[in-house]
């Protein structure tokens, strides 16, 4: 395999559609290794920042740079799981096979790889069920399997459990931790402090489109460096 696509470097990245600044001068380097949690209140810009990193949005200013110049190869080696999984009108298995097909995996290998990915998230028994009739938690696990089937080096997760009940959320977290253990770099946005602690190794704290703080999980929760982060950790709303 070629060299890693990481590190990912953001250089003074700004995003301001129609003059409204959503991300403001963010410079970051994200390397392999620790799971990164992007933490912040609703509207802080977490989702937008992830989309800029993943390449779904183009920055208005600044640059997003990966350690891989080829766009197609870059696309194949990273994946994203969204807050609301988008399932195609076909079976769970076919949804995973679809992703493998787009990644140019040879036809003969798709089914076995897809079944392996479904196994990984505990959905093999539902492989032939239509994806859209699965429960919310099952659909999100299927989204994880679809992302995982490509063995991405980096997996972005945008509030993957925000719409799920606690039990389903725990199942998702277990799967994410397994991917982390298998060597995939996890970058997850959340506003759930407990989840940040359970899944993350380091925190990037975002407020109003700016990075306020970056620290390890332990030090972020024990000694937040900024007053805003301290207020967020204490569960206070920053604008009250």
């Amino acid at each position: 395999m070629a060299a890693s696509i990481l590190p990912l470097a953001l250089e003074e990245v700004g995003y301001a559609p129609r003059g409204q600044t959503l991300i403001d001068g963010v410079s970051l380097e994200i390397g392999a290794g620790p799971s990164t949690i992007i933490l912040g209140a609703n509207g802080a810009g977490k989702s937008v920042l992830m989309r800029l990193m993943h390449g779904l949005l183009a920055p208005s200013t600044g640059r997003v740079r990966w350690n891989e110049p080829d766009a197609a190869s870059l696309r194949r080696r990273q994946a994203m799981v969204f807050q609301r999984p988008v399932m195609l009108r076909r079976s769970a298995l076919a949804n995973v096979i679809y992703a493998l097909k787009l990644a140019n995996i040879p036809a003969g290998e798709r089914e076995s790889q897809a079944l392996a990915a479904l196994d990984e998230v505990g959905l093999r028994h539902l492989a032939h069920r239509p994806a859209r009739v699965l429960s919310g938690g099952e659909q999100q696990r299927l989204a994880l399997a679809r992302a995982w089937a490509l063995h991405p080096e980096v997996l972005f997760l945008d509030e993957p459990t925000a719409n799920l009940d606690p039990a389903a959320a725990r199942e998702i977290e277990t799967v994410i931790k397994a991917f982390d253990a298998a060597g995939t770099k996890i970058v997850m946005a959340t506003h759930n402090l407990g989840q940040a602690r359970r899944v993350g190794d380091e925190v990037i704290y975002l407020q109003a489109g700016r990075v306020m703080e970056r620290a390890t999980i332990e030090s972020f929760f024990a000694r937040p460096a900024t007053a805003e982060a301290a207020a967020f950790v204490k569960g206070e709303l920053p604008w009250v």
Binding site: H54, L56, A72, R76, M80, F82, V86, Y98, A103
Partner: peptide
């Protein structure tokens, strides 16, 4: 977003 993310 999902389709573009998958590289379609």
């Amino acid at each position: 977003e999902q389709l573009r993310s998958l590289g379609a």
